[in-house]
């Protein structure tokens, strides 16, 4: 079964380059440039995992995870951010659906991220 990944990032080249890579890894990929758009998309389509940027216009990545994880309990999240100071809040560390690994931009190689995606989806 092909997994569907949603990339939530307002930076198009970042989102685009990751999407291309994931497509090449045979994932189905969708993109959203705001938390609001992403929630809207989730209502319409089944998604297995969201790669979440934190700094976003409107609702930020953390708010998005909080809002989405209750409505879609099976949904998984991985944080991919340009803010190196970010820490996963202690409450979220307990969540099995939120990866404890944070991926910091720029990633020189996407393989570790893909590896984590596959682990989360197992």
């Amino acid at each position: 079964m092909t997994h569907r990944i949603l990339i939530l990032d307002d930076d198009i080249p970042v989102s685009d380059s990751l999407a291309i890579f994931l497509e090449d890894e045979d994932f189905e990929v969708a993109q959203a440039s705001s938390a609001e758009d992403a929630l809207d998309y989730l209502k319409r389509r089944r998604v297995d995992l969201v790669v979440v940027d934190l700094r976003l216009p409107g609702m930020d990545g953390q708010g998005f995870i909080s809002a989405a994880k209750d409505r879609w309990p099976a949904l998984k999240f991985i944080v991919y951010t340009g803010s190196p100071e970010f820490q996963i809040p202690t409450a979220m560390v307990q969540e099995r659906n939120v990866s404890n690994a944070i991926f910091l931009k720029p990633l020189p190689e996407f393989e570790p991220l893909v590896h984590e995606i596959r682990r989360m989806l197992r």
């Binding site: 930076d11 080249p13 970042v14 685009d16 380059s17 291309i20 890579f21 700094r55 931009k105 020189p108």
Partner: peptide
Amino acid sequence: AHEINNPLAGILGYAHNIGR
């Protein structure tokens, strides 16, 4: 950092994809 890391992520991501 955030402002520079994003474009860098784009550059590196695209370059990586091109190679692949």
